[in-house]
Structure formats: structure tokens, C-alpha cells
Design a protein around this nucleic acid. Structure first.
Lengths: 245, 245
DNA sequence: TAACAAGTCTGAAGCGTATTCAATTTTCTT
DNA sequence: AAGAAAATTGAATACGCTTCAGACTTGTTA
């Protein structure tokens, strides 16, 4: 990610990395910390001003370093912006995964994922807007850092879908990537709409609508699986009555 | 839109605009034509190089004018890019409206709209990618040229939905803007996905899936979900009979 | 501990590109 | 045909990304 200062330390101290444990770690951790500070500063400025209107000088000032220092950590402005996005994806994936793991039903998992996504996207609005600018200057998007991170992130969604199919909650015939595009496309568009109107209250309704669509039934109460479940229960009790006669 | 040369002609020739009809029209039409040429040139270059990598000099050369001339037609690079987008929206709306008018059922209308959208977006890929760059530098998005054109365009969709509801094809309880975000969000995301994979054959399937979701029924004819749905209904009514005894 | 090496930081200079504008050319009017 | 208005030009300017030679810090070795 950062082609910066940290990397040569490893090869310099060679195979015996632990000969003097503290100093080496300290330098590395200092470097890491500064990289983090630069990314944070960049995020702030990018969010408030947008990609085009933020200058490297602004970021340097916010991070408390000289202009040139930025270039020892990131190759250029684009790379720095990609660093910000990478960091965003990392946090997004982390919170998504842990939250999804804590839910039981397919519906709950999807709802959490959607809420998490839309909340973070709206909180740090503008970060994902930079994506098209940066990817278009990339020769190969597949294989890039961002591509990998994005793939990881949507992997959380994919797992829910696969699992949901195994449980019978989601129709089997639709391709995963289509559901993915529908899901995230709707959320991103929706986030934009709600940002424009400065209206965050409709989030819940959008998520309901979307997840319900994913689960394949019409707007009516409950997923197909849930209704089958209910029907099965009623059948059992009805059968018991019949049998008892 | 263009604050350029054409505008003063009106006030100069005053209220009696038709005193000498040909020359006045000729100058205006020439100006219009040149503006069109500039927008076309800009579109070409923007599409092949992306916003950041196209220089005003490139556009000027392609349009066959001097650098400075661009600024008599458009205030700056952003405004020129907005001009390109405006033109795109105008063509998009035009083809969408006429195509939709020619279809009868709600499904056919939606399918056409989706196909039209995804085709044009993919043909001139990169144009809509510029949108976030440009809108973020706008002080007020609402009220801008692009906002109005976009509103016009999605109006085509909105009309289909309203009509579809009147016909009973579309559930009434979901908000229009949500369906809109889902519809166009999915299409834009899907277009991106298919551009990355250079795969255009999946378009039809995506559209089917999406439109079917809009229309509220399960997936296409005779799917597993649909059959299970039907079975569930029959079981429910059968149970009711048993339970009522 | 001192001297050295490697790593890190700095900010002024270079460079490319958007934008301006005084001078020129073209078009229209009378 | 002369004069006025509009349109065009391209060299000069300004701004912001990027570079790089030198200064400074940190870690290493004798």
C-alpha cells in the first residue's frame, strides 16, 4: 500500500530481526503512526472539500508535516486518496463482518449490513465519490488494492446470500452479482438522495423495502421461508386436532 | 447554460428581431453549431481519457479552435463537462420518453427504460462518472442545470410507476423515490460491473431480475420460489378449511 | 561515548495545465 | 464602404502537484 519508509527496515536488519527489539519496533510504529495521521488528515480534508478542491498543501498542514513528506508515504495525490479509501473499506468490512456474525436470520443479517453500509457512507460522505476518479486513472482495476478490498467487503454480502439460499430464504436462480449490484447500487443511490435532501429518517424504510425484495416475497408480511414456517406450525397443530378425534 | 456569445444578439437587435431575418439567424445558428462541436469534441476526449486526464488544449484541438475560445462558450472546465452531461441527459430523456410511449404494459415500459439506460450509459461510459466530481464543486446541487435535467429524466420512470400503480401492477405502499433509487442504482452499479468484466450479455438477465422485483411478484415464470409460493397459498387455504371445522 | 550509516523530513524550484485578456479578425448594420 | 459589435486568438499568468538536494533524526558499531 505505502511504498514508503517502513519497508527497507526489514531487509536492513536481516533475518535476525529481534536482536534489539525496542528501537526497530519504535521506528516502525512511529512510521505507521505518522502514516495513519496523514491518512486521517487527508480524509478530513477530502470529505469537507472534495477531491479536486483539496490541495496537497492543505493535507500537509492538517497533518503537521511539510509538503514533501507526503510523498515519502504516498506516491502521489491519487495514491493518497486510494489510501483513504482503503482505510475506509477496511473499517467498513470490519464492522460489517462482526455485526453480521452477531445476527441469526438472513433478514437480520441483511438489514444490519445495509444499515451499517448506509450509515458509514453517509457519515464520511464524499469518500466513495472519489472512487470513479481514481479507478479511471488505474491501468488495471482488477488486481488493484482497492479492488481486493472491495471484493473482501462484498464477500460479506455474498456469504449471506449463499447461506440464505441454503436455508431457502433466497431464490436460487438469480446470480449473486446481480443481487449484489441491486443491493449496493440501491444503497449508494439512496444515500446520495438522502444526503441531498438532508433526510436520514427514511433510511429504515429503504432498507426494509430492499431487504424484502431480496428475500423474494412481495411487500407482504415475512419472507417465504418465514411464511412456510408459520404454515408448518399451523399444520402441525391442525393435524393434532384431526388426529385427536 | 452557455453564458457565451449568443446571448447578447437578442438584446442588441432589440424588440424588432425580424427586421433582417437571415443574417441574425445565421450568426446565432453558427454559434449554436460551434457550441455543439465543442461539446462533441469534449465528449470524445472525456470519454477516452477521463476528466482529470483531458486538458483544455486537447479539447480545443479536437474542436478546431484556440484554447481561449472554449472560454467564450463555457466558463471553465467544469462548466464544459457539465455541458457534456447536460447533452447526455437530454438525449437519454428523449430516447427514453419516445421508447416508453411506444410500449403498452408496465413491464414492457420498465424493461425498455432499463435497456435504454444501460445501453447509453455503457456506450458513453465515463460521462456519468464525472458527475460526482462536478456536483461536489457546486454550491447548490438543487437548482442546478444538471439537477433539473436529471429530474426530468427520472420523471419518465416516475410516470411509469404512477401508471403502474393505477393498473395494479405495482404495490402502492412503497415510496417512488425508493423504487427509483433501487432501479437506477442497480442499473448504474450493474453497468459498472459489466464494464469491468467487458461482459454485456448479462444485461438482459439483470433487467429481468430488476423489473420483476419492481413488479412485486417472485422471479420469472415457473421458478422454484414462485411454485413454493403457490404451494404455500394452497396449504394455507386448505388448513383454514381444516381449522374451521 | 563518538562517529558513522540509514532513514526521514524539508521547502524552494520545476513543470504542466487552467484561465485571463489585450490585440486581431470576422460579422453585422447603416 | 465605414464603423460597431461580436468572436477569436494565443501568449502571459497563476496555481498546485511533484521533485530533489540538502538538513536533520534515529539507530548501529567500535
Amino acid at each position: 500500500m505505502a511504498s514508503g519508509p517502513a519497508e527497507t527496515t526489514q531487509s536492513a536488519s536481516g533475518s535476525d530481526a529481534m536482536s534489539l527489539s525496542r528501537p526497530a519496533q519504535t521506528r516502525q510504529s512511529r512510521v505507521r503512526q505518522k502514516e495513519g495521521a496523514i491518512v486521517s488528515a487527508a480524509r478530513e480534508i477530502f470529505i469537507t472539500n472534495g477531491y479536486a478542491r483539496t490541495t496537497m498543501a492543505m493535507i500537509a498542514r492538517e497533518a503537521g508535516v511539510a509538503d514533501g513528506t507526503l510523498y515519502t508515504y504516498f506516491e502521489n495525490k491519487d495514491a493518497l486518496a486510494r489510501g483513504v479509501i482503503s482505510d475506509f473499506y477496511a473499517r467498513l468490512t470490519e464492522s460489517a463482518q462482526s455485526g453480521v456474525d452477531a445476527r441469526k436470520t438472513t433478514r437480520q443479517k441483511l438489514e444490519f449490513l445495509a444499515r451499517n453500509h448506509i450509515n458509514l457512507v453517509m457519515e464520511e460522505y464524499g469518500i466513495l465519490e472519489m472512487l470513479p476518479i481514481l479507478t479511471s486513472s488505474l491501468s488495471e482495476y482488477s488486481g488493484s488494492d482497492i479492488y481486493t478490498l472491495n471484493k473482501h467487503y462484498v464477500g460479506v454480502f455474498d456469504a449471506i446470500i449463499r447461506d440464505g439460499r441454503a436455508r431457502g430464504d433466497i431464490a436460487v436462480e438469480s446470480k449473486v452479482w446481480m443481487l449484489r449490484d441491486i443491493f449496493f447500487g440501491a444503497l449508494d443511490h439512496g444515500a446520495k438522495t438522502m444526503m441531498i435532501r438532508s433526510n436520514k429518517t427514511d433510511t429504515k424504510r429503504l432498507i426494509d423495502q430492499l431487504v424484502t425484495m431480496m428475500l423474494g416475497t412481495g411487500a407482504g408480511g415475512g419472507s417465504l421461508a418465514e411464511r412456510m414456517e408459520a404454515v408448518a406450525e399451523r399444520m402441525e397443530s391442525a393435524l393434532k386436532q384431526v388426529e385427536d378425534k
